[in-house]
């Protein structure tokens, strides 16, 4: 059957496509093109347009130890947040899939964090984990200085990792739950007859069958950690203390809007873009080829 809609009037088709094309052009291709141009040029000190400098900007970015610091933080952040949130989501999904009491309500509850904007999540985490008034304040009173994200870089990084992980749990949870529920019940029953307990069944049967979902979510989570973490960092730590949480995407912003060096910022954002494109490519290539059991 031909599922493609066919338009005899190509003008109508074009008109229907136009708004979306316009949006994509204005908010993606144009700025991307602009960034690409800036990354190969430098602004003349006394005005009069941009000067072509070839790979000068790239070389200076890649030779900057501050930049590599932000790469390191970003990678730690992305891997830790993705792993944590995937693990949590998987556990929740397994519980809901086992139809524990109240699973209907929990299902909605677990998904809700995903509906929150990153700055809201950031704000919530800042308050909840505030060293003097938050949940950890009590522990801090017993062991003074144990937790202070405003002073300790590791604490700050931990805090934004927690916030990011929490905000992704809902999304991962839904995918895992859908994945678990698409595994035929009889398969798990066969496992039970073969003597495997619930944990063993998760490990031997459900996890391997979820592998494609797991891989897909890993890529999505890492991408999201690179791209969408700005709101959380900005609200929770503003990249501090002492750049301990200056993620790549946040550094683009500080260099561009606070340092007013648009070429440097553009260069970094192009590098980030290439990274994301590579991740997306990996995802498409491997998900397509991932084992499909039938």
């Amino acid at each position: 059957m031909n599922k493609r809609a066919t338009f005899s009037n190509s003008w109508l088709a074009a008109a229907l496509l136009l708004p979306q094309l316009l949006l994509v052009f204005i908010f993606f291709y144009w700025p991307s093109g602009e960034a690409l141009w800036w990354s190969f040029t430098l602004e003349r000190p006394f005005g009069g347009g941009n000067e072509w400098v070839g790979f000068y900007n790239y070389l200076s970015v890649l030779q900057d130890s501050r930049y590599w610091g932000s790469v390191r933080v970003s990678v730690i952040f992305a891997i830790a947040a993705s792993a944590l949130s995937i693990l949590l989501a998987l556990m929740l999904a397994v519980f809901v899939d086992r139809r524990m009491r109240g699973h209907q309500i929990l299902k909605t509850g677990f998904f809700l964090p995903y509906a929150l904007a990153a700055p809201a999540v950031g704000l919530a985490f800042r308050f909840i984990f505030a060293p003097d008034a938050g949940l950890i304040a009590g522990i801090n009173r017993v062991f003074p200085g144990l937790w202070n994200p405003a002073l300790d870089g590791n604490d700050a990084l931990t805090l934004i990792i927690l916030a990011q992980a929490w905000s992704l749990v809902g999304y991962n949870f839904i995918f895992f739950l859908a994945g678990l529920q698409s595994i035929p019940r009889a398969l798990l029953e066969a496992g039970a007859m073969d003597g495997a307990g619930p944990l063993r069944r998760v490990w031997d049967l459900q996890l391997p069958l979820l592998a494609p979902t797991l891989f897909f979510l890993l890529v999505i989570n890492i991408t999201d950690s690179f791209v969408n973490s700005f709101g959380i960092v900005d609200i929770v730590t503003s990249g501090g203390p002492a750049r301990a949480t200056e993620l790549m995407v946040y550094k683009v912003y500080t260099d561009g809007f606070q340092g007013k060096d648009s070429s440097l910022a553009a260069t970094q954002s192009v590098i980030l873009m290439v990274l994301i494109m590579a991740l997306t490519f990996v995802q498409f290539r491997f998900i397509e080829r991932k084992v499909h059991y039938n």
Partner: peptide, 14 residues
């Protein structure tokens, strides 16, 4: 101590 053969076999696909 029972072993069961399922209608659509329920073999572990992986």
């Amino acid at each position: 101590g029972c072993a069961m053969v399922f209608q659509n076999y329920a073999l572990y696909p992986h």
